[in-house]
Write a protein that binds this DNA or RNA. Structure first.
Lengths: 158, 158
DNA sequence: GTCGCTGCAAAGTCTTTGCAGAGAG
DNA sequence: CTCTCTGCAAAGACTTTGCAGCGAC
């Protein structure tokens, strides 16, 4: 798969770092670094969207048809990545479970109920307030997520 | 089912109101008011927890064994209630989809990752900030939800 | 070489649907 | 009476698992 290797040359430092972390994680758990796992990580990294196992599978099939990656491997790898906190899953109403790389900076989501588009944002004021609330309730906060639902600019115009 | 009728006598005004709304909703859509639908609404109202279709079913089976309510009816009624915005569904990681009555005042959730317990809270500061953010991004906000994950007081002690 | 990984297909879950009889309006 | 509901069981959708051969180390 020389074209995968070539691809790496154009990767950002950020991706190289991510890949290194992943390899370390695997090594630490005596797991193996396989082309499938690499392709999944890469595809997640290159996608700006939040992917379902299904859509990840479709993307990979399209980009690396010769790999014949099975959906089971996608599920297995996503679980692995999620367990290791390298990806985060979100689930919205009917649209199922979606995954995104968790290595990115923390952010919240604004979801358009018309077109399903997801916009990310961060607000330090809210972040701070969340920490305070958890504290007040005696909660040892490990994570949090926030979603705002509504109709995005584009869909309002239509 | 006279015992159901009797139960209503001890209901709060709030529940009476909820029931009236439900009946109106049904009438408006030429749907029928059945014992099953009533029992589902009542059980949701009386439960302080966030219920899965499964657990709702179990609760109803236990409380009204003579009804033999099918799980399919639970699913159908929950969809109906959700479509009409009378209940809200939340989905967390692996624990599946949980429902709660949406007639309650808006609130956010703090979820214990150890015992799965859910604590509700509201913070006006965050609520306000959310409105501002949606506004800034040109979003017409219809709803939002926020979850804080962590370890609750109880589980920290154990 | 060893032992984990993968694709495939089969098995599980969870949820939805078709149908015939029951029941609300 | 009519037309929707319901329970049941069968069908679907989505995930997980078992297995035999493959491939990383």
């Amino acid at each position: 798969m020389s074209n995968i290797v070539t691809n790496f040359n154009s990767r950002t430092v950020e991706y190289e770092q991510l890949l290194t972390n992943f390899k370390e994680l695997l090594k630490k758990n005596s797991l193996k670094f396989t082309i499938q796992r690499e392709v999944i990580l890469e595809t997640l990294y290159n996608s700006n969207e939040h992917l379902t196992p299904e859509s990840l599978h479709a993307l990979i099939k399209k980009k690396f048809p010769e790999l014949k990656t099975g959906i089971a491997t996608i599920y297995r790898t996503l679980s692995l990545l999620e367990d290791s906190d390298m990806v985060t899953s979100l689930s919205f109403g009917a649209s199922g479970k979606k995954y995104e790389l968790g290595a990115k900076k923390h952010h919240d989501h604004m979801i358009c109920t018309t077109c399903g588009d997801i916009t990310e944002f961060v607000d330090e004021q809210i972040e701070k307030r969340q920490r305070n609330i958890a504290n007040d309730l005696g909660f040892e906060m490990s994570d949090h997520s926030m979603q705002i639902y509504g109709i995005c600019k584009n869909c309002q115009i239509k």
